[in-house]
């Protein structure tokens, strides 16, 4: 970034330190902001079908539920929803952590725990769906 002219600096609302250098304080530029929106739209599109799937399962026993959940289209919709929402909530929770936790070590530990949680929940759910789909 080129240095601003002296005349510009006088009228600017921002301190020189406030001007973002490289990828800024997040170290990731705006990529998380973009992915947060991308995954929000994906989750939003998938919510209606997922709610319908859940409603279809009401009142059924395990055998009935397993049969529905194992159908390819339903399994695919659920897997897409899980990937989109887990990714979205991982980014979202990281924003919350960075807003409230200022101790650097505690922040690192929390961000790490957040990553573990989201990956674990997502993979466990996807594994369950794949198992239902293969009927073992």
């Amino acid at each position: 970034m080129t240095a601003p002219k002296a005349s510009m600096q006088k009228t600017s609302m921002r301190t020189p330190l406030g001007r973002v250098r490289n990828l800024g304080a997040s170290h990731s530029g705006t990529s998380d902001f973009w992915r947060q929106r991308l995954t929000a739209v994906a989750t939003a599109l998938l919510i209606a079908p997922v709610v319908v799937i859940v409603l279809m399962l009401i009142g059924r026993n395990q055998a009935g539920a397993a049969q529905i959940l194992g159908a390819p289209l339903i399994a695919i919709i659920l897997i897409l929803f899980i990937i989109a929402s887990a990714w979205h909530m991982k980014i979202g929770m990281q924003v919350v952590i960075e807003d409230y936790i200022h101790n650097e070590k505690l922040k690192l530990a929390s961000v790490m725990a957040n990553n573990f949680f989201c990956v674990a929940v997502a993979l466990a759910s996807i594994y369950a769906i794949l198992k239902l789909s293969s009927g073992v």
Partner: peptide
């Protein structure tokens, strides 16, 4: 909750 429910079904 969602994960628990899917794992239980499986």
């Amino acid at each position: 909750l969602l994960a628990w429910w899917l794992i239980a079904a499986a």
